[in-house]
Amino acid sequence: MDRKKWKITTTVVIAIAVLFSAYWIISAKPGAFHDATQLIDKINDVFPQAQAKVIQDTIKLDDKHIVVPFISENDDYGLSYWVWKHYSWKLVYVSTRGLPELWKLGNDPSTYHIVWNLHPDSNVDSLHFYMERHRGYRVSRGIEHYYYPKIQLDEAVSLEGKTYGSMKLWDDWSATIRELTNNQIKKPISFEDKSLAFQNIIISFMYYDRTGEHSTLMKSYSGRSYYNGKIDTEFLFFTEKARLESIEDNYIQVHHSSR
């Protein structure tokens, strides 16, 4: 057989094999998740300061995103964030400071999740979340009026004795964010600021302890965190009752944490 033919056939076969395996790797269904010992090893390998000791649970947010709450050697309650990528589960972010954070799994606000792991000494019974935009106005050229209504959406989650939990962003919240984002002026360059602050939206939280008191004092959360990959998260602000508008305790419906 002539060599040229051989060369072409080999090249084609190799090309097909490469394409096929690339497709395989990219589209593969997420495989089994690590067990507790493997998780501890991985976390401490990626970020030794985390000193993970106990894995509390694994919370599956969707097929490709998992949050693992853990307790460290020096009694910090932290979270590790895992993403299914390139045919393996990757640890993308570790934090020993378990205060609520917003994890944006995708571009659409309906993929946003709030996750937390609060130290039991804080005695947290329920977490209360607020999405706000300040009231404002603008008058240009003396005649063109622009009014920004106050936005304040409230939701609450009962912790049910667990220190950790997750909550998919409520439908009203994600619809509101989507609506306000679409309304933004389009940038000529394909640069889009997805941060909530860019839409003047603030998501904040406060909590009630077991005595029903809403607490402003928290155990000092002076954790460390480490980014090990691409992830889009935002910290939630801590708020207090005095800052809120026409708020009655019975207004808030307490939801149950998704796990």
Binding site: R135, Y137, H145, Y146, Y147, P149, A175, R243
Partner: peptide, 30 residues
């Protein structure tokens, strides 16, 4: 109709303290 955004803002903010404030446009049509 004419909406005086500055007057509306001042009215809402001055009329009541933070914890009892009403919003004139409290619904979003989607």
């Amino acid at each position: 109709a004419q909406l005086k955004s500055d007057e509306l803002y001042v009215k809402i903010v001055l009329e009541s303290d933070q914890n009892n404030r009403q919003e004139q446009f409290p619904y979003l049509l989607i």
